[in-house]
Design a protein around this nucleic acid. Sequence first.
DNA 1: CCAAAAGTGTTGTGATTACACCCATGT
DNA 2: ACATGGGTGTAATCACAACACTTTTGG
Lengths: 233, 233
Amino acid sequence: MRRYSQQKRFLFAVDCIIFGYDGLELKLLVIQRGFEPCKGKWSLVGGFVQDHESAEDAAGRVLKELTGLDGLYMEQLHAFTQPNRDEVERTISVAYFSLIDFQKYKQQINEDYHPVWFPINQLPELIFDHQKIVELAKEKLRYKAALHPLLFELLPAKFTLPQLQNLYTCVYNIEFDKGNFTRKLLSTNLLLKLKDKDKLNSKKGAFYYKVDPKRYNAGFTSFLNFVPSQYVK
Amino acid sequence: MRRYSQQKRFLFAVDCIIFGYDGLELKLLVIQRGFEPCKGKWSLVGGFVQDHESAEDAAGRVLKELTGLDGLYMEQLHAFTQPNRDEVERTISVAYFSLIDFQKYKQQINEDYHPVWFPINQLPELIFDHQKIVELAKEKLRYKAALHPLLFELLPAKFTLPQLQNLYTCVYNIEFDKGNFTRKLLSTNLLLKLKDKDKLNSKKGAFYYKVDPKRYNAGFTSFLNFVPSQYVK
DNA sequence: CCAAAAGTGTTGTGATTACACCCATGT
DNA sequence: ACATGGGTGTAATCACAACACTTTTGG
């Protein structure tokens, strides 16, 4: 720790891990880079942090450019700092993971991005240390969603309990008992039952629910123990 | 996202949040800066990341310089990236929090550091955004220790259950039932009972325990639900 | 012998699991 | 009418909180 002037300066970037759910499986949005280096290779979407921006700002900007969406759920995952992680020049990267409603996503026209949704278990090879970043993000998603009402962010505003249950099944690769799942979720008081039903997926039809915005924030920290602990790393 | 060469470079530092427990209360190690800027003011210990180092490396080095100890428990807390957080020049800081055995700590002679342990609830004013960093670290300590066997890192290798209970009481500011606390802890099978007792704190004396190293790693993820959820933010 | 702290036992309550059963409806 | 998936009921079990009780020992 000595004088500022003697210190090296480094490049500073953000990378975004974007989860989506199409109703069947959990997916990740990755881009095929339209620029050098590694043009044509698969990569997380990212960008350099500008002068006036915090990393949060930069990640929000990158997400907006890619998806056209503002105000997505987003949280800092980890700072990746290995000196040699970027093969061009040392770059510090702060990774953010975000959850988006698959239905709201509309591909943006941008020469730099050629985004593709990949099933979370069938990702292509990614550049640099992006594979490792994704692994950490998957782990954190499972960890956090076991304790907090997070997965709603992946669903449309209106969703049914069977849909939600299937999402949990995708994320944790375990079956949940229908009855117990319903009871446990409704007992959190986080959901409001709507009048209409989804009749596409069954004959009887399943009621739609939406998240109760008043209760959501309060309930965020009292959602614990939703998934048996042996499934949470 | 354009060419690397057009991008700005920034200073890159680490800050360490160091928790200790003296048997009575939870404490934080802060330094009185012996160098400019802010000479004489209270601050977290930190340092710039060098060319060859990852942030982890740098944090480990800083900790070693301050405490003389290697291999301390350490984990990344958060990257702090507000453009104006350092008043001299824009500096990205990755914060690490670590837990140390108070008894092992020996002050190192170093003209830059004048370290002092402060009770966690009676901290002096800190420079820059260090107050905010500490708040986040306290929150994360409580969160993580509620789910994982973490607080052992603050105790000597040999400790008694009443000591451990008191530590939990300090961290969460709640009383734990003696009987239930004991049972719950022993049921984790993480502890090995030793033959000798601590007779300093009571007439009857309390058996010493140590962490079972074999079980510790396995049990790290299955320690959930130790603290009632309303006390975990 | 008594105070004080360690440690054990007991009991009621509420959560959780497993699984059976009923319901609504498109074909 | 019946197959299909949504939704409800229930009994056994388990985990937990509360608190009473026993043990040990220094003074």
